[in-house]
C-alpha cells in the first residue's frame, strides 16, 4: 500500500505487523552485515538475534507498509533495546507518525517504533527520521 505523506497526521499509526523471526531471515541478515560479535550462535537451539537485526527486520514490514518514496534518505536513528530476541520468536512491530513537516524542498518524517515479543513484552523501541522530497505525495507502491 502506498501512503500519501502530505495527508498523514502525527499520532497516526502507519504500520502494525506481526511475524515470526525465522532462522533463514536472521541468517541472511547476519550474512549481509557480517556480524562477528559472537552474540549470534547459529548452532544454539534458539540463537539470540543481534540487536540491530531486530531493528532492521522490524523495520522491514514498516518499509513495505509505508511505500517510502524513492530516494528517501535516513537521517537519524534512535533505538532502545530492552530484551533478548531469539530465532523463532513472534514479533509485533508498530510504527506511529511522530513528525511530518516540510522545510523548504524537504519533507521531514519521524516514526516512533515499538517491537513486542509474543508475550507482549517490549523488546525494542525507537525513532526513525527520514528526509524525502517535499513534493512527494503518493509514494511508490
Amino acid at each position: 500500500m502506498a501512503l500519501d505523506f502530505a495527508t498523514l497526521e502525527t499520532g497516526q499509526e502507519l504500520s502494525d505487523k506481526t511475524y515470526v523471526l525465522d532462522a533463514p531471515t536472521v541468517e541472511r541478515y547476519v550474512g549481509a552485515v557480517g556480524d562477528r560479535s559472537g552474540i549470534y550462535q547459529p548452532a544454539d537451539d534458539r540463537p539470540v538475534v543481534p540487536a540491530m537485526a531486530v531493528a532492521a527486520l522490524g523495520l522491514r514490514g514498516i518499509v513495505a507498509d509505508l511505500g517510502i518514496p524513492e530516494g528517501t534518505v535516513h537521517a537519524g536513528q534512535e533505538l532502545d533495546f530492552s530484551g533478548a530476541v531469539r530465532v523463532g520468536d513472534v514479533l509485533r512491530c508498530r510504527a506511529v507518525l511522530s513528525q511530518n513537516a516540510v522545510r523548504g524542498e524537504t519533507r521531514l518524517v519521524s516514526l516512533r517504533l515499538s517491537v513486542e515479543d509474543g508475550a507482549g513484552s517490549q523488546v525494542m523501541t525507537g525513532k526513525t527520521t527520514l528526509l524525502m522530497g517535499a513534493a512527494h505525495g503518493a509514494a511508490r507502491a
Binding site: A32, V33, D35, R36, S37, G38, I39, V48, P50, A51, M52, A53, A55, A56, L59, H74, G76, Q77, E78, L79, D80, F81, S82, G83, A84, V85
Partner: peptide, 28 residues
C-alpha cells in the same frame, strides 16, 4: 544507514555482550 549502523551495534555487542542486547540505547 542501518547497514552502517549495524557495525556500531556489533562493536557494542562484542564489548558488552548480552547487556547490550537487553539494555542498550543508541542514538545516531
Amino acid at each position: 544507514g542501518m547497514m552502517v549502523a549495524a557495525s556500531v551495534s556489533e562493536m557494542m555487542s562484542a564489548e558488552f555482550g548480552m547487556a547490550w542486547i537487553e539494555t542498550g540505547r543508541l542514538k545516531l
